[in-house]
Nucleic acid binder design. Structure first.
Lengths: 242, 242
DNA sequence: CGAGGGTTTGATGATAGTCAAAGTGAGTGG
DNA sequence: CCACTCACTTTGACTATCATCAAACCCTCG
């Protein structure tokens, strides 16, 4: 009872590029099945030679790296539509782990078919590369954030990014989006301690800039939050869907 | 008097994938010319819609982002063989700036030919995507470094990365590699202040782990340095050349 | 010889980390 | 239905790492 690409709910979202009938069909043929996992389930392990790659269809998750000393760096947060396992697909080995934060449904593609799919159309190959380049762009921004901003700006930046992403996916209603992560996850994403992250969130809350509680993030004026983050909001570009 | 791809000195280095005669020819046809720039010259600007993409042929440089407040984040250091401008090629806009640190020679490719080149062979398209995925992998590591390691480990990590990269390019002789950057560049790469970076380098020097002076980095025992960094050394994989 | 870019060093202070404990709410079992 | 546990959040007190400020030093260059 899997979702056919034909009826994929993500494709209806304006944030994603339109696909030709042919592209939809090719993708459908490439799709090996669907994977449904519970919250907390590991999906890909760093260093593993994953036999499959995925597209997040429903639910949220996170990518992270573990250090020998037990520290964890959260690389980023996974939203519906995200392509997962590009590194495994290209290089045969993941540079980070991926796990589900909520229940998730993933479209499954066999890595053995990946190169075939890549070859099948240079437009689709271009899409995959586009995604990789975009990811690189985002990681550069993250690096800049962790490296150069102090805690309050850094947290504000992260919340702006999350909120805009959610907005693009029509997940914002009444200035509120679902944010089913733990403060520890955000702390690990920003390279801050849990305690300091908590206190920083409290400051943003008392300044009426952003309130995150019970798995929901509320932002009334994204512009003000962006100002604290020290960024100006740009138009979000449409992205391809695999 | 440009270097022909046929005689490209980089291709002789074992670190790079072999290329078929056909690939060499295709690349040659794609190559629009050569650019020679002096140390300190900006090559690409963040946000610009660059009409060209490059491969570093000789010399070193760096990628960086500037923040409104004047802070700078160095994204990474550019070595010979690095492909520059992927984001511009794919998305039409750079997410960071690039500038030459030493005199540099760059192979120039017209962006307008880029898609053509991409289409010309799915193997070459795959190479480009591979590079993007590798870059993403590295940025994840950098993020982890800045986010989770303290100053001494962080600096050690960076020096290990630089040294291994140089070694792969046969730039290491007598435990010594050229490192023509300023301490400020490293500081900006690691999100540390110049002063603290300087003192941390002094600590590594006094512990006999790494000595960087006069544009040369000397490391006698990379294993020990890696230990301070908290990483284990892995085999370097060959990479494609564009 | 003076200027300027880069490096080095010392002193001081603030931001963020660590430690510890209490609060909150959901879920479980007696 | 009331403890009790467990996971997460919140708060306070203390500490340390790292940033900032300032000045000296070293070289090269004109």
């Amino acid at each position: 009872m899997t979702t056919s690409c034909e009826k994929c709910p993500l494709r209806k979202i304006d944030f994603f590029d339109d696909m030709t009938k042919d592209e939809v069909e090719k993708t459908q043929r490439f799709k090996a099945g669907e994977l449904t996992v519970d919250a907390g389930t590991p999906i890909l392990m760093e260093g593993s030679n994953a036999p499959q790659v995925y597209t997040a269809l429903r639910g949220m998750g996170l990518r992270y790296k573990l250090l020998p000393d037990g520290n964890r760096q959260v690389i980023n947060f996974i939203f519906p539509g995200d392509f997962i396992g590009l590194q495994a697909g290209m290089m045969g080995e993941m540079g980070h782990s991926v796990e589900a934060t909520t229940n998730m449904t993933l479209c499954v593609f066999d890595r053995s078919d990946f190169f075939e799919f890549f070859k099948s159309s240079s437009d689709r190959a271009f899409d995959i590369t586009w995604i990789a380049a975009t990811e690189e762009h985002f990681l550069g921004d993250s690096l800049t954030n962790i490296g150069q901003r102090d805690a309050i700006s850094s947290v504000a930046w992260a919340l702006v990014m999350l909120f805009r992403r959610a907005d693009a996916l029509n997940m914002v209603h009444n200035d509120e989006m679902p944010l089913p992560f733990k403060q520890q996850d955000l702390a690990d994403a920003l390279g801050l301690s849990l305690v300091h992250t908590n206190k920083t969130l409290a400051r943003l809350r008392s300044r009426q800039l952003a309130a995150w509680a019970d798995g929901k993030l509320t932002v009334h004026d994204l512009g003000e939050l962006a100002q604290v983050a020290g960024i100006e909001l740009e138009e979000m570009k449409k992205r391809p869907l695999i």
